[in-house]
Amino acid sequence: MMESIKELSKEEYLLKGHIACAGCGLTISLRLLFKALGNKLVMVVPACCTSVIPGPYPYTSFAVPVQNIIFEATGATASGVVAAFRQRGIKDVPVVGWAGDGGTFDIGIQALSGAAERETNFIYICYDNEAYGNTGIQRSGATPYGAWTTTTPTGKKERKKDMPFIMAAHRIPYIATACPSYPMDFINKIRKAKEIKGTKFIHILAPCPTGWRYDTSKTVEIGRLAVQTGMWALFEIEYGKFKLNSPSDRLIDKAKRKPVKEYLSLQGRFRKLTEDDIEKIQRWVDEDWERYRKLALNQYV
């Protein structure tokens, strides 16, 4: 466990010259991933923002080996790399699948489910910016209710999938949520995942100023508000045991959580929400937290 951010290495493996948008939440997450694991990892990256961010051939801003792969294939291709390394006796190199929400919730869910069911020894990280960001903000299975996207111009009419619990149904040893606004929690979870054998699923809320319509300077603040309002809960499910992490563990009491409106009103994508919509979202968040409360008490899913 890292106790202080000062313990972090000063080495950077996300190099200068990448072409991410200003204020990109996933790029902060990438930097934290490399801070957590150093450069001794192999990444499998499908079509997503991250396949663009390193820049075009013959350049790359990633100082780690990357296998780029087709959109829906992350879980399967990572399985292949893991098998190859086992054959070659390479033991100390974690294989990290790094995919967006479209590549995880939608087109890639089959390959991910298969890899998890086969107990593939790898870390799958979903950086969730709640839309198809790379193609210009279209709705995905991760887009929340009411959010504007280019394919939901009047707001999405359906709710977001509960992806960590879909993964929990696969009985994998480790599931965690994280957010780059809480770097210590983020890094500790990735380091913990590295030490566990089997499939590890880490779900990151990656605020996206381009898609969410907020000022590029506010990414960290938006992430914090997501957690403080309870729209995003930081938790782990370790060998089936559910545990809320700080600061979410102090938010079980509704009075401690900020109203969701504070999170929603900062983002242009929620501009068209009515008061009824906001009430509905607040109710759903409260219901989720009632579930978390029970889970935390019973300590299993």
């Binding site: 296998q67 792969i69 399967a76 291709t77 098998a83």
Partner: peptide, 16 residues
């Protein structure tokens, strides 16, 4: 769990 994944896994392995 599918042929699409069969080829995708083969690519990962060959790249390994």
């Amino acid at each position: 769990e599918s042929e699409h994944s069969a080829m995708s896994a083969c690519m990962g392995a060959a790249a390994g």
